[in-house]
């Protein structure tokens, strides 16, 4: 069968909402697109452990500390679900990590912003995980079976993340004037980067065409972004915080909020490495990986010794 014929058959399967499985025939571009997107997703979960890990030793109570530990452990788990799913496309874990270290694979830019105060733990859970959930719920219907199944598992666990973040924000917003100010400041800093998590406008996103055609992506960036804004505004109002957007206004006709311009120069600058923490995040990952080398080697040597007995 020729390549063109295979592509036609593949598209027919996609159009019929068939899930594609690891050993099925698929166009090389589909495989590449998935490896890029899924590994970026996996790396984001793992790099995302850094801003929060930074606060584990400084959590304000034992309760808060236990919760944060559990959340960071979940993020590691989500990274592993996604690495395994990506590996089914014929790329090894070693290669995936190498590509991250070489800067050839990316992770979500949001993690290149620092977590300065305890309120940031609230903002990250509420807004960053909230935006991630909006995107991931949509991806539960993605066309690649292992990716879709990983998303179902992740979505089940993410809802705890968002609630714990909102709880932090709510208790700080209802605390002393100083605490409320910290909560508002965290919202001010994380609001716009959270909206950028959905990616550029679809008209400026060169890969959207193929991703929609192959049902890797199921909804447009701008649609998902709007959905997130619509459900988050009232949550901010409920705890007495103000969304830092003077153009935010309810639009009766569209049954949805109008909102201000996103600073896309900032977005592209952070994507290209110019964010406050890009260098630090990658350096830390490399260091942790290098420092773990002797552990991996010792485990391999131990397993080898015991299997040859």
């Amino acid at each position: 069968m020729g390549a063109e014929e295979l592509d036609v058959l593949f598209q027919e399967r996609i159009d019929a909402n068939d899930k594609i499985e690891p050993r099925d025939s698929m166009p090389e571009e589909y495989r590449k697109h998935l490896i890029r997107q899924m590994s970026q997703h996996a790396h984001s979960e793992v790099i995302g452990m850094q801003p929060e890990g930074n606060w584990i030793t400084r959590a304000p109570s034992l309760r808060a500390k236990k919760i944060l530990l559990a959340k960071v452990q979940d993020e590691a788990g989500h990274g592993l679900y996604l690495y395994s799913a990506t590996e089914t496309l014929g790329i090894s874990r070693e290669e995936l990590i190498e590509k991250l270290h070489q800067g050839k694979a990316k992770y979500a830019s949001i993690f290149n912003y620092p977590a300065l105060t305890w309120a940031d733990m609230g903002a990250i859970g509420w807004l960053v995980d909230g935006a991630a959930i909006t995107n991931q719920v949509s991806l539960q219907r993605t066309s690649y079976g292992p990716y879709a199944r990983a998303m179902v598992k992740i979505c089940k666990e993410e809802s705890f993340h968002q609630r714990q973040g909102y709880e932090i924000m709510a208790s700080m917003a209802n605390g002393t004037a100083e605490q409320k100010e910290m909560a508002q400041d965290a919202l001010n800093r994380f609001w716009w980067p959270s909206l950028m998590m959905f990616g550029p406008h679809d008209s400026d996103s060169p890969r959207t065409g193929n991703a929609m055609k192959w049902k890797i992506k199921r909804e447009f960036n701008d649609v998902l972004r709007k959905r997130f804004i619509d459900k988050t505004v009232s949550q901010a109002e409920l705890i007495g915080l103000t969304i830092p957007d003077k153009d935010l206004k309810w639009n009766e006709e569209n049954n949805s909020y109008d909102f201000g311009q996103i600073d896309w120069d900032e977005f592209w600058s952070v994507v290209k490495g110019g964010g406050p923490c890009n260098v630090k995040r990658l350096k830390h990952h490399k260091k942790a990986h290098q420092e773990g080398e002797w552990v991996r080697k010792a485990a391999a040597a131990y397993a080898q010794k015991h299997s040859s007995k």
Partner: peptide, 11 residues
């Protein structure tokens, strides 16, 4: 030990 490869283990 040095000839042991640095891997992520088997699947």
């Amino acid at each position: 030990m040095s000839e042991v490869k640095d891997t992520q283990g088997q699947l």
